[in-house]
Design a protein around this nucleic acid. Structure first.
Lengths: 348, 348
DNA sequence: AAATTTTTGGCAACCGGTTGACAAAATCCG
DNA sequence: CGGATTTTGTCAACCGGTTGCCAAAAATTT
């Protein structure tokens, strides 16, 4: 842009990416490259004085090891992959954040790929990324159990919110949260409730439905499943008719997105929430308290989930011989967050 | 999957990560490793028939090039870094998605790092990631102009929503959207408006304020800046008192987060929106239509921004000699999305 | 002081690709 | 049909680290 540009370009040979190597350090410090390597990576192997000299030279040259050159013989890349179905789904934000923090703590870098809810995209992305990472965290995978096991055979895998034989997982227990939610509805006098279910293939969907059913029956309520549906705002909105038709006084939705969709459509159609219809979502996503009324929801500590997932993976990585069953169960559990979308059932 | 698995597992030494190399292919196909390399990477350089044979052998061995071995001599990693300030800020989701798509199209992998709004974190993450990527996209960096220029000297950088000398950028024009917003308020009879500003250091904040001021003055309105503030829900909420005190009938907020915070607090305090106070946000984030009333906002096509950012970076990468000024301005512009939070000004 | 053990640093091979140089083979030309 | 040209495959060096092995130097023992 300015006329000084020309001069600059001439004198500094601004060759991008020309970083210092151990050979430069060797030359500067007068030692052998292998000695340099040892001084930098195996403290103690080398005379303390030489080590200090070498480290000084390294600092002077602003040395940073080329990760590829390092990864080549060792096979370790200090990167882990995080595969998620839909990055715009607010559920993931906190998982990602928790994972980021845990990874950065140990000097690992997160490589994030999105499958856009498509299992072929996911397989492709995985294919591309797998060789560059030490391990994989699958957050909401669309892959089949067999595919997951196969990936697990290549690199350590940790599954979040899903369970597959032989594969490590981190899935916080829904039980308490669901029990509380059902009790909450029972206390409010609801007799007939519905579960607005998510995708048939979702492990978590089945988990929630089964738990819900068990608790509802125990509390003497009837419960019906409406679905399967896409786990989206739109699907929640479109299901209002079926909800109305079912005659229930309360709905638990597979996730907040669907809950919000349902709630807004109900309000738009003049159905009063919570007076005419109580709604409970899952996940406590960003924005679930923006609605009128704000959505009552079963909350998961997703940041913690992401954190524990990466911790488990790092554990697996550090300890070749660890088996998935050695991974401790997550410590945190779901809990009910009561906001405005639940109230006493209308008298029948 | 079948019983043949056992046999396979026995003879192939199922050592994790033991992938086929070009040497294996060479042995299997009877050619030299370098010939294999050429067949796979320089189509046409090799006799079509041999090329086919080699490719068949590669397929048979399920060959996938070791990216590190490849990156070492070429320096190219096919990865680009995406640095964002706060991954839980919904503004970024769509940027990330757009970037993902553009990157995947060209076989590039996105490495995402979050700086948690801290410039030291950001510098550190950048330090860690920089050697492993071909280029960097800075989405909401907390780095100083000088730091950015320095990074740009090492690897190609594309800035999103910010401008720094000598560095390529993608910043969609706010002008139309802001002009429309001001005109919208003027048409509704507002005479005195405020800008609830974001962080002082934000380039975009200054941009919006300057534009807003210019347009407001032109329309014969008075405008005041209230701030600076954190770009958060909480800050929006806390600023209500100052907004009330200012006596304005309409507020434009630096972003939707602040707009939503302000709107919800106003409603909570019994101030009617939009009858008593009109509010316009920026960004059209997820959830900005969940509020009651839904937030009127100046919408940016963030997915497109992410897309164009990566495209620009790829362009820079493919064409060493390209200078930042060769990057075309983004084609899309901001536009006003009128929802429910704006209405006629009360008569003074 | 000689023999033995331990420390220390250097040599060289290796990780798995890419690529310039070159010779053999194939194709073209007059 | 012989010489010039093009095509094709191989050799070998290189990218920047790591690491097993060994010899020289230093420290210890006898």
């Amino acid at each position: 842009m300015t006329e000084s540009n020309n001069a600059e370009a001439q004198n500094t040979a601004p060759k991008r990416g020309s970083a210092a190597t151990i050979y430069d350090i060797a030359k500067l410090s007068g030692f052998n490259p292998s000695t340099v390597s040892r001084a930098l990576t195996t403290p103690g192997r080398i005379n303390a004085k030489t080590e200090a000299k070498i480290k000084a030279a390294a600092k002077e040259l602003n040395y940073q090891a080329n990760p590829f050159a390092r990864a080549l013989p060792t096979g370790r890349t200090k990167m882990i992959a995080l595969i998620i179905a839909d990055i715009t789904n607010p559920v993931f934000f906190n998982v990602v954040r928790g994972a980021e923090i845990a990874a950065a703590e140990d000097g690992y870098t997160l490589v994030i790929a999105e499958s856009q809810e498509s299992s072929s995209n996911e397989a492709e992305a995985l294919q591309r990324i797998l060789p560059t990472v030490d391990g994989v965290m699958l957050v909401t995978t669309r892959l089949s159990d067999e595919e997951i096991q196969e990936v697990n055979r290549l690199k350590p895998v940790v599954l979040v919110n899903r369970k597959v034989d032989e594969v490590a997982d981190v899935v916080p227990s829904n039980e308490n949260g669901i029990a509380d939610a059902v009790k909450h509805l029972a206390d409010l006098g609801h007799k007939h409730i519905a579960f607005l279910s998510g995708p048939r293939a979702s492990w978590m969907n089945t988990e929630r439905w089964n738990n819900l059913m068990k608790n509802a029956v125990k509390s003497g309520m009837t419960i019906v499943e409406i679905g399967p549906n896409d786990p989206t705002l739109e699907a929640g909105k479109l299901s209002l008719d079926r909800v109305k038709a079912s005659g229930v006084s309360a709905v638990v939705t597979y996730n907040d997105l669907m809950g919000i969709g349902l709630l807004r459509e109900a309000v738009a159609q003049g159905i009063r929430v919570p007076e005419d219809l109580s709604i409970i979502g899952f996940d406590n996503i960003f924005g679930s308290d923006f609605t009128s009324p704000p959505l009552t929801t079963v909350m998961l500590n997703l940041e913690k989930t992401g954190n524990e997932g990466v911790a488990a993976l790092l554990n697996l990585l550090a300890n070749e011989e660890l088996t998935p069953s050695d991974i401790p169960a997550p410590e945190h559990e779901a809990s009910l967050l009561v906001r405005g979308s639940t109230a006493k059932a209308k008298k029948a």
